[in-house]
Every structure is written in structure tokens, then in C-alpha cells.
Design a protein around this nucleic acid. Structure first.
Lengths: 347, 347
DNA sequence: CTGAAAGCGCTAACAC
DNA sequence: GTGTTAGCGCTTTCAG
């Protein structure tokens, strides 16, 4: 079964034979040329249905598996997609990654992860490494990056899709939503519920956080109750513990009647810490995380959050990239997904 | 600067030139043969220091980046490492992944993720796909897998390191700790604190959960207070919500004086739900998650947990794999890392 | 619609 | 220590 006459033609036989079942072996078994098998298996160009069947059968019976390295070398394109995300410690990005990964897998692509830690320098370095591997595609988070990184992406010629933010520009592919609009909507929702002193609690301060802050500001300015003293922008990394800390600080310093936490971590930490802090959250304090806060609505009288379609963003971005990589036409370069404000009252 | 006489020797010139800077270009610039540059850059075999310097300089000035596909094809080994984990929704595995990924990166390897969803069939399928890419190494979680998967790993010849569990056997590489011993120690700790009716709350029921349960059982049997009615083994996937549900159920059905949750998720969910459930956790109820529960000790009088060195496991496993891939000698095939029981009293 | 030839860029094997 | 030669397994190009 194993390539009986593999060395028939090479005089200094089998010098580097790897024991792998090759296209050549399949071709011999199917009684056609290697290139025909290649085309048949890839479904590229037109091949007589009968030959396709024979090729497939032969490949199947020999257990043929194409060698990705050889394929990449010959075609100048690999089956890898590099995905760059800021952190793995934030469930938002993990959810995105998971959705991206599983969608790409169905398309036959492997996912290479890169964690930037919100560091432009590290992102650029990572991009350089990843692009050296000639990935078939690239998925990055947001638009905030170094000039060098931008150039690397552009000149690489590798199709790239941006997640989480949207920007309408020619040749820019993105899937996300308007962070600012979402922030504004959430704030308006709190206003509509009667809150007036709404604090904004943010950490990390990446681009998206600041866009949400801008939405918050506009909503309050429109309502005539913007107060800079209610903005708490802390640069350190977001975490549950920091959320608890900020919550304690804000409740004491600012006596707000609602708090808009810029993300889940902070909100969740605040909610969990509340009992210990002895701060009995008054009925009119709403805590608003930016996404879904699992199982924590019990801790406060009311909880407002914006449900953002994380998994859908990851999936849609991956699908768009698949189309790009396959050279298929794209309907829209920029897909804006819907989020919604969700209000939950404690039971 | 760009390969001036690239087509000098090929009659039907430039048929498929890719514009990439190749080893050939560097060799020309350095005035040596390609293979010498290759060896110099890889630090393989002995090359005259002077030539090494010239090669490096030329590579640097031309901006040469080795082509991984060509390298993989020629050498039959890629620079990819496949990492298989059960879930991305559990922080344990995310932490492991993060540690593995960053350690591998320092060694020049790329991480390919595979999520098995605790499904042996899916794992086998994934393994098949991943191994087709001839990864340089493989990292998997635990030892519980299908016979087919085991065979795939063995016959692939790809070095493989197991995380999280330990098993001393020739040719088996692993980094982890004894789940059973940890479970037993935690239970004994609770016993020492005076608890007698200790419930075991578990979900998912993978191998590691059951090993911890076995430790729990032994500790209670030794103490003469094992009661099967206190074991709650629910097969559904673990989550915060499930933790809340189990907590309510257990407190009503079993009136325990301590609960050993088999993992963080369940414990955290229980802690968060407690206030709403109206179950004022009595002073003598200890809730023990299996790992670190961030910022939640405030919710119960006392919290016992086992701190397992997740990041250290990931890092150590990756380091071991790096040694294996480089053909370096390994001191120990099986590394057992230390965990510790941590007791925190509410302030 | 099918095939022959020619590499993709690199490294293993062997000589010198 | 260095170079020569011959591929790794696939796909592109160009002819039929």
C-alpha cells in the first residue's frame, strides 16, 4: 500500500523520502496526472466529474492529507489567519476569539492568536512576526495602532478585517458598532429613568472606552446635566478589584444616583463588593455595565446594560474574511451590528 | 536593492518571482553560499565567526525574513505548536493558554488553538486537522481522550506535553498536580475547621472533577463522616448560573455546614446569588472553590480555596515542550507543581 | 478540459 | 568549515 515504486525514477533513491502519502501517489492510484488530482480535490477549474470521483476515491483510500507547507510555498498563501486581540483576561475578547476561531475552522483555516496587551509596540512586533508567516488573512481589534503597524498591514497585501469599531473608508473592512452611539444611548436610558448625577467609571482607557465616554458626555450635555467631576477615568488595567475600589471611591466622593461602568469587569467588581463595603446601594442607583453581567442583577435594585453582540461580531468578521480570502465579492465593507439596552429590575 | 539580476540565470525569466528577499539574495550580498547563510542564521553547525557576522549584516540590511513555509517543507517541521484545551469560557484554560502562548512565543513558536468542548470526538477530529499541519509540538489538557486520539498523537511522532494532571509513565510528558490529593487536602482542611456535613458540588464531571471528588470522599471516609447524600454531581456544563442553582438546591436539600465546589465558576455563582436567595450564609458555612475567587470573599464568612498554579503550569509545560522540540535533554518527564490551601476570613 | 515543465525558498545529505 | 546538489510536495504557467 505504501508507494511501492516510489524510488523507481530517482537513481540515488529515497534520499529524503518522508513516508507521506503525496499527490503523486494519489495520481498514480487514480491513473491521472498529479495536477488533475490537485484541481479535482480543490474544486478549482473544471475537471471531468468522473475524474473528480476517481481522484477523491483514491485520496480517500490512501488517506491522503495535503501538506500545508508545500501548498503554502507553491501558492504563496497559507491556511492560517492571525487574530490580534488586546487581552485574554477579558471575556469580551475571549468570546470574540472563540467565535472567530470556530467560524474560520469551518472554512478550513487555522487561527493564530496574538495578544497585544494594549501595547502598540507589542502589536507592531507581533504583526511583523505573524506577517512573516504569510497568513491568508488578518483580524485585528479596533483601529487604534501605531503608524508602523498600519503600514505593515497595508503593504502586506493580506486581507484584514477590523472588529469592534466601525469606520467607513474605501478598502477598510470592519464589523462592529458605534461605541459612541451605544454609550450615548445607555446614558440617555439612565436619564429617562430619572437619574441626573450619572457617574462614568472607566479604566484601561483604550480608544473604545473613550468613545463610549464621548457618548456619555454628549447625552449629559444635551440634557444639561454634564458634570466633569462625575467622570472617573483611571488609566490602570480593568479588573474586578479595581471596580470594587472605584465603586467605593465614587460613592463617597460623588454621591451619584447612577453609575455607568465602562465595561463588565468594573461593574461586576463593584456589584460584588457592595455588600462588604457597607454601601447599601439605594433604590435609585443604577449600575450600568457595558455588556451582559451574568447573574449579578440580584445585587442591585436595577441594572442597565448594553448587550453587544460579541459572538456575532466575531462570527461576522470571520465570515467577511473568508469571503475576502476566497476572492468572493463583498456586499458591504463595513457591517454595523445592533446592540440593545437592557433593563433588569431586581426580583 | 531589489535582486537586480534575479532573472539572470533563468531563461524564461521571472516566471513566478514573488518579490520576496530570499536566502539567495542574502548570500549574494554576503558573498557566500546560501547554505552558509542558512547555517549562520540558524546557529546550526560551526560557521566561521566572520562569515556569521557578514551573513547577519547582509540579512539585516536587506530585511530578510525566512519563509516558514519553505523551511517547513524542507525540514519537515513547522514552527507551530497546537494547543488543545476543553473550553475558552473557563478562566482556568484561558490562563493556561495565555501562559503557554507567551512562553512559546519567546521560543519563536506560534500557537494554534483548538477547543475541544470536552468532546472526545471533536478532539480527535481537531487533532487530525492539526497534525496534518505537522506542528513542531503539541500541548493537550489531561489524559482523558479517545483511543483514536491517543494513537494519532503517538504515531505522529510529534512531541506532546500534557497539562493539569500527572501520570508517571515512560515517554509521557506532563506538568500538573494530583487533583485527588488537592481535593483531599481541601476537604481535610474543612474538617479541621470543624465542618462535618461537607457537600461536594460538581458539574461538567470531567476526569479532573471526578479525581477531586475521589479525594473528597477519601478525606470524609477517613474521618468517618462520608455521606453520599451530600455529593451533588451534575453533568451539565459549569457556569455561574448553575452555581447559583446548585447552591440553592443544596442549602435546602442537605443543610451542609460547608460546601466544596469543584471549580471557580460554581463557587462564584453561588456566592453572588446568596444575597438574593435570602439564604443568609451562616457563619459556619465555608464555601470552597477550587481555585482563586477574585474579590468575592466578602460575600461569605469564610472562604477556603485551593490556589493552583495555573500560569506556572502553562509556562512550565511550554518550556518542557521547547526543550523537547529542540532535542534538548529533559530532567524530569513529569513535573508536579505545588498548590496550596488558602483560608480567608471575611473582614 | 488535461498535462508537462518549472519552480516556490529552504535545508538534508554528501563531498571536499 | 564550506559548498554542491537534489529535492521537500504542491501549484502556477503555458501548451495542447
Amino acid at each position: 500500500m505504501l508507494c511501492p515504486d516510489r524510488d523507481a525514477k530517482s537513481p540515488r533513491s529515497g534520499r529524503r523520502s518522508t513516508g507521506r502519502v503525496t499527490l503523486q501517489d494519489v495520481a498514480r492510484a487514480a491513473g491521472v496526472s498529479p495536477i488533475t488530482v490537485s484541481r479535482a480535490l480543490r474544486g478549482e477549474r473544471a475537471v471531468a466529474p468522473e475524474l473528480v470521483a476517481r481522484a477523491r476515491a483514491a485520496a480517500e483510500s490512501l488517506g491522503y492529507v495535503p501538506d500545508p507547507a508545500a501548498r503554502a510555498l507553491a501558492s504563496q498563501r497559507s491556511s492560517h489567519v492571525a487574530v490580534l486581540i488586546p487581552l485574554l483576561t477579558n471575556t469580551l475578547f475571549v468570546d470574540l476569539l472563540e467565535a472567530v476561531q470556530s467560524t474560520l475552522r469551518t472554512g478550513g483555516y487555522q487561527t493564530l492568536i496574538g495578544v497585544t496587551h494594549y501595547d502598540p509596540h507589542e502589536e507592531e512586533q507581533l504583526l511583523r512576526e505573524q506577517l512573516a508567516h504569510r497568513p491568508a488573512g488578518l483580524i485585528v481589534t479596533g483601529f487604534e495602532r501605531s503608524e508602523g503597524a498600519r503600514t505593515l498591514i497595508q503593504t502586506s497585501g493580506v486581507p484584514c478585517v477590523h472588529m469592534m469599531e466601525i469606520r467607513r473608508a474605501p478598502g477598510v473592512y470592519c464589523v462592529g458598532f458605534s461605541q459612541q452611539a451605544a454609550g450615548q444611548a445607555l446614558t440617555e436610558h439612565l436619564l429617562a429613568r430619572g437619574a441626573r448625577r450619572i457617574a462614568y467609571a472607566a479604566a484601561q482607557l483604550d480608544a473604545r472606552v473613550m468613545q463610549r465616554a464621548e457618548g456619555y458626555r454628549r447625552a449629559l450635555q444635551n440634557a444639561g446635566c454634564y458634570d466633569p467631576a462625575l467622570e472617573f477615568l483611571w488609566p490602570e488595567p480593568s479588573s474586578l478589584a479595581l471596580g470594587a475600589q472605584m465603586f467605593a471611591h465614587i460613592m463617597v466622593e460623588a454621591t451619584p444616583d447612577a453609575i455607568f461602568f465602562c465595561n463588565d469587569d468594573l461593574a461586576q467588581g463593584a456589584l460584588m463588593a457592595a455588600p462588604r463595603l457597607g454601601i447599601s446601594v439605594p433604590t435609585d442607583v443604577a449600575v450600568a455595565g457595558f455588556n451582559d453581567l451574568p447573574a449579578s442583577e440580584q445585587l442591585v435594585p436595577s441594572l442597565t446594560s448594553v448587550h453587544t453582540p460579541r459572538r456575532e461580531i466575531g462570527q461576522t468578521a470571520a465570515q467577511m474574511l473568508l469571503q475576502l480570502m476566497r476572492g468572493e465579492p463583498i456586499e458591504s465593507e463595513c457591517i454595523e451590528l445592533a446592540w440593545k439596552v437592557v433593563q433588569r429590575e431586581s426580583a
